[in-house]
């Protein structure tokens, strides 16, 4: 089976007045379909930059990134948008729902950009809300539900286009322990029963234990790649 993510010799530098600052220094990583990967590392280790590159929101300075069989470096901005829409589902730390749109509209938003008919958009959005247990709030606004519920809506939005890959950047960073557990269980369920590849960034070791594979960053380099359980010992 072809890997969903293949990264070779990935470098990222930011231009500053004092010259280029390297953030990622030659990363090699391959992730197969169906994996559940947690990325950890201290602040400034480059894990967020890495995540942005994985999500096609940022481009590497050097190196190769092949997502779902396509070389991201060769795509234009419209093709990248299409890739983000079709292949990737994003879940952010701050939920990032549109405050003025109700949950149904929020969840169906990726379908709007995927040119799906309105009736189908609504049906699929409601299916996804059902899946995360929030079907009865379909017409509510994001500020009328709790943080954990908002994150579930964000996950429903990430899932609505049936992506192969979910990228979650600190998805439990704004949530309490119990809610965090619920969200992580949801991710694990999606990974195990639906076979969706999940890559999540976290700095909490407890959260990382929900994953099967752990990748650790330090100063822009990959310092660990292996089983979660082994890393703890």
């Amino acid at each position: 089976m072809d890997p969903i993510i293949r990264i070779e010799g990935l470098h990222k530098e930011y231009e500053t007045d004092a010259g280029p600052v390297p953030v990622l220094k030659g990363i090699d990583l391959t992730i197969d379909p169906g994996e559940f990967v947690a990325i950890m590392g201290p602040s400034g280790s480059g894990k967020s930059t890495f995540m942005n590159i994985l999500g096609c929101l940022d481009v590497p300075t050097r190196g190769k990134y092949i997502l779902n069989g396509r070389d991201v470096g060769t795509l234009n901005s419209d093709q990248l948008a299409h890739l983000r829409n079709e292949v990737i589902g994003f879940v952010f730390q701050g939920f990032n729902l549109l405050p003025r749109a109700n949950l149904e509209d929020n969840v169906s938003l990726p379908l709007v950009y995927g040119d799906v008919q309105k009736s189908e958009r609504i049906a699929r959005a409601n299916d996804m809300l059902e899946k995360v247990g929030l079907a009865k709030y379909a017409k509510s606004l994001p500020n009328q539900i709790s943080g954990g519920q908002q994150q579930r809506v964000a996950i429903a939005r990430a899932l609505v286009n049936r992506p192969k890959l979910i990228l979650a950047d600190e998805p439990t960073g704004n949530l309490d322990t119990r809610t965090s557990g619920e969200i992580m269980s949801l991710f694990r369920q999606l990974n195990e029963s639906d076979g969706i590849t999940v890559v999540l960034v976290t700095h909490e070791p407890d959260i990382a234990t929900y994953a099967k594979r752990l990748v650790k960053f330090l100063d822009g380099s990959l310092i660990y790649d292996g089983e979660v359980s082994e890393a703890r010992t």
Partner: peptide, 16 residues
Amino acid sequence: TREIGIRVAIGARQRD
């Protein structure tokens, strides 16, 4: 700006 970021992240093209 943030809303625009969200939209782009979930697949909006520049022309959208």
